[in-house]
């Protein structure tokens, strides 16, 4: 991972007005990855949208990192079920014809 594709945790936290402890807690429950380069902690720029979503859920809904993890897993499950539902609808439409 190149340093140019990373953003420091400090930068992210200053912008979003959150404590860096939140980032480490999110890492602890396995929701994000934190990288250390030359004793500086970084986040992947590529994953910022996802992290912003987690921070919104944390701030707006007042959930703990464990609670956010449950929400994320349930949303993934809904997504899978929706895909399965689409596939089955396609199949039913075909059988109806």
């Amino acid at each position: 991972m190149k340093k140019t594709e990373m953003i420091t945790i400090q930068t992210f936290c200053t912008y979003h007005g959150v404590e860096d402890s939140l980032i480490y807690r999110l890492e602890e429950v396995g929701l994000i990855n934190v990288y250390e380069i030359e004793e500086q902690k970084y986040l992947e720029e590529d994953k910022l949208s996802e992290l912003e979503r987690l921070v919104r859920i944390y701030k707006d809904l007042g959930l703990s990192p464990e609670g956010i993890d449950v929400v994320v897993q349930l949303l993934e499950k809904i997504d899978r079920l929706q895909q399965e539902n689409n596939y089955l609808l396609q199949k039913i439409r075909r059988l109806d014809q």
Binding site: I7, G17, S49
Partner: peptide, 14 residues
């Protein structure tokens, strides 16, 4: 969107 730090680099909207 949160506080706008004047010198903070930040990713644009999707």
């Amino acid at each position: 969107g949160g506080q706008r730090g004047s010198e903070v680099r930040y990713k644009g909207h999707d």
